[in-house]
Design a protein around this nucleic acid. Structure first.
Lengths: 343, 343
DNA sequence: ATGAAAGCGCTAACAT
DNA sequence: ATGTTAGCGCTTTCAT
């Protein structure tokens, strides 16, 4: 059974091709025509071919979405909200992640372009890669960059880690901690860089030497577990940990458990990021959180804005603020024991 | 700057339109032609328009993927593996989830169809909805159904919860538990139905009355917390809990904590599903797990199989087995205390 | 207000 | 082996 086309509808309604198209696009037609055509459409169960429409209108109603790893709950939440927001506007998401043995970022961008997506949402790896910059510059349509600071070149949505981590660190310092360890990946791009900056700033604002704090650049869980273990076994172990959510946090928890340390008695802990389980953990983990829905909404707003305003509008940068959710994983450091071992 | 088309390439290379197309599609051409065309392609930075190709070939290289909620880690993991597997085959994923205020399942299927996706992967809500069945029946291309048992109508991939939950229940029974509560949503479709069946079977195989076990149909986290709280406060509270991962599990953990109960001393707990955090929880939670990567791979295999074999091949059903990961959240019931209150 | 016809960028069948 | 041409299903002039 062949697909039903606009031609079939025209024949069925006894009108011309163009007239059916007019009805489809809500152009002014006579009532009689409208009814005949609608009747034919209903009878045949016709739905216009999106491909053919796109071909003519140069608009696919598809948005390319490139995130490093959709199985990362952070990105999953974003994509979910993006999907819901975009389908409200009649768009559909095309999703792709770069893979080790598969397509690279650049290849995915090229493929999106070939498929004529109307816009691009990308959480790229690098902040400086010239090839990436060039590919994005060449891209024909609105772009929103997530989680990397591309200065004034593109619309960007960023989580404001700096003030958040600063507040978290300040909180730990106010409890009496001095040797705090910050575990974060990506210290050479926005997320890590801002976290480190906030971390240092908290020390500085109290007149403390920021070198008291340890920064542990992290990538994998296994590394995290091993590194935390090593850190906790050192001569002057930290009394508090600030760990980015996900595998770094779970890795840290493994290390803490294997050393038999108690939270918060022996070690205070704050999570950067607040997935569901962090709040029900034993003890409930104090966390830095931000509004993912707002992040996604801002992304969509930027995408559609530059869609309409033409290319004239200058790139914007939206910062998503964070707040610290106090729970039960932080306490003053075990001063006595520390004092003994310190003298 | 107008987009560069095959026409531009032909002119640049001084050959005909069709010859360029031949080169593009790897059809036999002379070396001289091949080189001229490739040079022109490289010089102009030409990439074929996927829309126009699809229009002619009736193949988009896109796969529609409809899951209830991508922010659910279970689905996120599946979609991630699907993406990586499909891009290996040159496909691209179109993703959409039904939303309360947005598109329904049926509308998404229709939209996928309008967009001429080459295949459909769907984790539907209902197992029996006639409208859904009809929409899927009308769909023009291979379909793989996830997590619902559509009998012999479509290719299907299912997690074999029955034997898994049976093993988990058997384990709890062997520890001496008799009053076990199973918390699962969807008891009228495959996942819940199979879990309940396995649960009952474990009692039956020991000659025990399956009515000793309590089945709590769950949907929302809030219900879970409230229901578990009520259950734990009842005259004969369960000594063990079997909870589906995600919000039901976190809800249960909240209730357990608010009652000041200790795991496994006061209550044993098994998670159905094994996200990262379950293993680092305090105590580490015994869990039923399955291989999501295998699930996704089977899905792709089914999709491509029926892609090639024509519609003749009869629908297949792939079962993904589970295994029980023993950790520290289960112990014999506190017999003494119970005995006192029982007599 | 409606019909006829051109063409979006490609592929494939038909010539040569 | 390569050039020419007819569509794929639609939108959009241009006529009427």
């Amino acid at each position: 059974m062949a697909r039903v086309t606009i031609k079939d509808v025209a024949r069925e309604a006894g009108v011309s091709l163009g007239s059916v198209s007019r009805v489809l696009n809500g152009l002014p037609v006579s009532d009689r025509l409208l009814q005949k055509v609608n009747a034919a459409i209903a009878k045949l169960g016709y739905a216009p071919d999106a491909l053919a429409q796109s071909m003519r209108t140069h608009s696919t109603g598809a948005i390319g979405c490139l995130v490093p790893d959709i199985s990362n709950p952070l990105y999953a939440a974003i994509v979910n909200t993006l999907d819901r927001g975009l389908q409200h506007q009649g768009y559909m998401l095309m999703l792709a992640s770069p893979a080790a043995g598969g397509r690279s970022e650049l290849q995915i961008i090229a493929e999106f372009q070939r498929r004529r997506v109307d816009g691009l949402i990308i959480a790229p790896d690098s902040e400086t890669d010239p090839a990436l910059m060039e590919a994005l510059g060449r891209f024909n349509g609105p772009i929103v960059v997530l989680g990397r600071d591309f200065q004034q070149r593109f619309d960007t949505v960023l989580v404001e880690y700096r003030t958040g981590v600063q507040a978290a660190t300040r909180y730990l310092l106010s409890l009496g901690h001095r040797r705090i360890a910050l575990m974060t990946p990506l210290i050479d791009v926005w997320p890590g860089r801002e976290r480190v900056a906030g971390f240092r700033a908290a020390y500085a604002e109290l007149g403390l030497d920021p070198a008291l704090g340890v920064v542990l650049p992290q990538t994998l869980e296994l590394d995290a577990a091993a590194d935390v273990d090593r850190l906790l076994g050192s001569a002057e172990p930290p009394t508090a940990l600030l760990a980015i959510g996900g595998r770094v946090l779970t890795g840290a928890l493994r290390a803490i458990r294997s050393r038999g340390l108690r939270i918060p008695t022996d070690l205070s802990l704050i999570s950067i990021g607040d997935p569901e389980w962090v709040g029900v953990f034993n003890p409930a983990i104090t966390a830095l959180r931000w509004d993912v829905a707002r992040l996604a909404q801002s992304t969509i707003a930027l995408l559609l804005k530059s869609q309409q305003a033409g290319q004239a509008a200058s790139p914007q940068r939206v910062l998503i603020s964070t707040d610290l959710v106090l729970r039960d994983s932080c306490a003053p450091p075990a001063a006595v024991g520390r004092a003994v071992s310190a003298y």
